[in-house]
């Protein structure tokens, strides 16, 4: 790798009409509790950020231990803790107004609002509230259990439910006349992610974020014979899940052709390039922070530029879906 300070390649990408300085995005659930934290991630080099998933009301989440890792994988069961829409309003106000709004306090990079709910009607109510804060993109997290389902299976794991939530949010956005792009965050824990993506696309999704964590998985302490996570099981992320994520992104790309935030196991610039080749426009990173700290964002961006320069790629966007 060379020591030059910036890449010659153009790293800007356009995702659903929103301009990003580079393709890296902070994934939901990591360093996303406060505006100050999101701003710091941007300072460190991220092209955009995603909030921790926002509920309408306060949501306690699970007790600790909620996360830990090894060199191969990371396991978490935070339980989507959040203080609700009131806190979210404060976060967006602090983070700043959209670019081009002419406001004094302009946000440093696009922000993706991740929303979560336990039933369809709540997704609609939350959409109505969150739109007032003018996030650049709305990400619908459908990986939480459907409280109205007798088995409590996540919306993301059922084609009809996933499509239904998409429809509900789309209808609300249209009703409000909102042009905010809406993407759906998909779970890899399904037999055919492409089919689910297609069903959501048919109901008006503008794009996708994939994948959420794999599993769930479990780690047991041998001496006490107890699972370590307080929730017993949790989502698997980190280096081990990258091949699953790359394949899922490619499936969604082939099934829908819509823009994707490719997320899952991305640790390096080359991982990010691979994700783009599979079909991603943006590349999400969360667990990367565990391995490379928050400064890893800038490092990955530099590595992407270096790769492009070394391989004669002048515009990084040309790589999207370039898999042969």
């Amino acid at each position: 790798m060379s020591d030059k300070l910036w890449a010659m390649a153009n790293l800007k990408v356009n995702f659903c009409g929103v301009e990003f300085e580079n393709p890296t995005v902070l994934a939901s659930g990591v360093l996303g509790v406060t505006s100050a934290s999101l701003k710091r991630v941007v300072e460190m080099g991220a092209g955009g950020v995603t909030t921790k998933s926002i509920w309408m009301e306060e949501h306690k989440g699970h007790k600790n231990p909620t996360m830990f890792g090894t060199e191969h994988f990371f396991l978490n069961a935070v339980g989507l803790s959040d203080a609700g829409i009131e806190k979210a309003r404060g976060l967006f106000a602090e983070y700043g107004e959209p670019a081009g709004s002419g406001a004094k306090n302009v946000r440093p990079a696009p922000v993706i609002a991740s929303i979560v709910a336990g039933k369809q009607s709540e997704f609609a109510d939350l959409t109505e509230e969150i739109v007032k804060s003018r996030p650049d993109i709305l990400e619908v997290n459908i990986s939480c259990p459907n409280v109205e389902d007798e088995f409590g299976i996540p919306f993301a794991c059922d084609l009809l439910l996933a499509a239904d939530v998409t429809k509900v949010v789309r209808r609300k956005l249209d009703e409000l006349g909102s042009k905010i792009p809406m993407i759906v965050k998909l779970s890899p824990n399904v037999p055919n992610i492409g089919r689910i993506a297609k069903a959501c696309a048919d109901e008006g999704a503008d794009g996708f974020c994939a994948i959420n964590t794999v599993g769930p998985g479990m780690v047991i302490d041998l001496k006490t014979r107890k699972p370590i996570l307080a929730n017993r099981v949790g989502g698997v992320s980190g280096p081990a899940i990258k091949p699953i994520a790359v394949k899922a992104v490619n499936d969604i790309h082939k099934a829908t052709g819509l823009p994707i935030i490719g997320t899952g196991g991305v640790m390096t610039g080359e991982d990010a390039i691979e994700m783009m080749m599979a079909g991603a426009t943006l590349v999400g990173m969360g667990t990367m922070v565990y391995y490379r700290e928050v400064g890893g964002f800038g490092e990955v961006v530099k590595e992407m530029g270096d790769w492009c320069d070394a391989n004669g790629v002048e515009v990084v966007g040309d790589l999207i879906g370039s898999i042969k």
Binding site: V30, L31, T34, S37, K39, R40, N64, F68, Y290, V294
Partner: peptide, 22 residues
């Protein structure tokens, strides 16, 4: 704190956003 190693973002202080745990 939740993680203790600078990932969860629960202990970030305003307005610098630095993690107290890290």
């Amino acid at each position: 704190m939740k993680c203790g190693f600078g990932v969860c973002g629960q202990c970030c202080v305003d307005e610098t956003g630095v993690c107290v745990c890290k």
